[in-house]
Design a protein around this nucleic acid. Sequence first.
RNA 1: GGCGCGGUAGCAAAGUGGUAAUGCUGUGGACUGCAACUCCGCCAUCGUCGGUUCGAUUCCGACCCGCGCCUCCA
Length: 462
Amino acid sequence: MSDTNRAELVLYNTLSRGKNAFQPIDPNRITMYVCGPTVYNRVHIGNARPVVVFDTLYRVLQSLYPTVIYARNITDIDDKIMATAAELGEDISTFSERYAQAYFEDMAALNNLEPTITPYATKHIPEMISMTSLLIAKGHAYESDGHVLFAVQSMENYGQLSGRSLDDMLAGARVEVAEYKRYAGDFVLWKPSSDEEPGWDSPWGRGRPGWHLECSVMAEKHLGKTIDIHAGGQDLIFPHHENEIAQSCCAHDGKPMANVWMHNGFINIDGEKMSKSLGNFRMVKDLLDHYPGEVLRFVILSAHYRSEQSFSAELLDSAWRSLDSLYGYLRSSKRALPIVNKSGVGYKALLDDLNTPMAVSELHRLAKQMHSAVGAEQQSLSSELLGLAELMGLLQRDPEDWFTLARGVGDISKQDIEMLIAKRQQAKGDKDYSGADQIRQSLLDQGVVLEDSRAGTQWRRS
RNA sequence: GGCGCGGUAGCAAAGUGGUAAUGCUGUGGACUGCAACUCCGCCAUCGUCGGUUCGAUUCCGACCCGCGCCUCCA
């Protein structure tokens, strides 16, 4: 019988359209695959949302199970990559590797842990060719005019994830049907490459893989035929994940590709989806020039991952102030070792389909309580606070650094600040308050706020 | 046209069949030489209209508004 007090992970599954208790295939080896980027550009903050969200899930899973294998791919062969590299006259692999590295940097700046495995599409061409052959052999794919296409009608329940029938999909289709397709909904597994285009030899001639194939192949190779969790952005539900399911499921005689499918909502700018095509995106890199990565992460975790999320400079500033408040409490108390309180409100909130907004509110509650507590109680609250924060990848920095590290090249130095504080102290001692205030104002003008207390004067950059 | 999501205070954002967490902002006060920090307090009846119910923001229905997907897209 189930113990109602026992912490249980509950996740929303796009496939079942509801929250279900998470049932691992093998509790000793949890497998999770998150769709990574196609590397042809710097990523925007919307691309960062799934990474932050599922990084948090990864941490939560690690708190529950001994081993979690987390794979996040790099798609480094794609028409957009080819086009952009060609424009720049750059070698495609040099080009894509550059953006893969940029992606790693951006994601690391947001405190994301590295996945266990980062598979590259171009390192799995032979496996993609064999899955394609297998699908042809099983009657789920056909060759046509140098292309290999997946025949969606050959699959019993194609469209299950996105909840639509083939008829519905084609009714509103806004794409012209390529001549080589037997059926409008069929999608490409393999396509021919011209001599100038990158390509690999295959039974169907020199060519390259279609978009969805790499994920099916890499998930199988590194995680298994059926994995625990497969995740990504909402826009991947159709066609990307639907087609991954079709490929994997048909290649594996009906075995499900993943038990749980999770999808995060979009980030909106002025009520509209942020996207590359709308041109209203905010690059992570550019934001990092103005805000600490932790602020970006905090904003993302302030909303529930399945909701749409607003994004603005005002929100970033507000998030920064919230973090200041949290770090402020941390700064004024002795730091304890992080310990996850598994019966705490925050942890339970995370187990409930990653209710990070509630966990964040618990962070504030714990910090406040810690601040007014003393001795052992304070230490225990500090542990719980830091433990919960660690699960979300937050509050990991030294509070002193958070407030005092220079933020830009022109910032006044720590030495100068402390020298001026000493001078002001002297003025105060001499009851020269206008002199003291002058110094304080001058520091404030340089972005430094002073906080007097009995113990002395503390400062922070604002 | 098909499928789906959402409308909660100035800005964000949770949540619940019994009159609504949390953060930022604003505001009153304490503390302070003055500030800052901190502390105490204040600021919403949950899109509209009906229905179910002893009672609905929470369930059901209609409507209005906004948004997303339908093979570029996290």
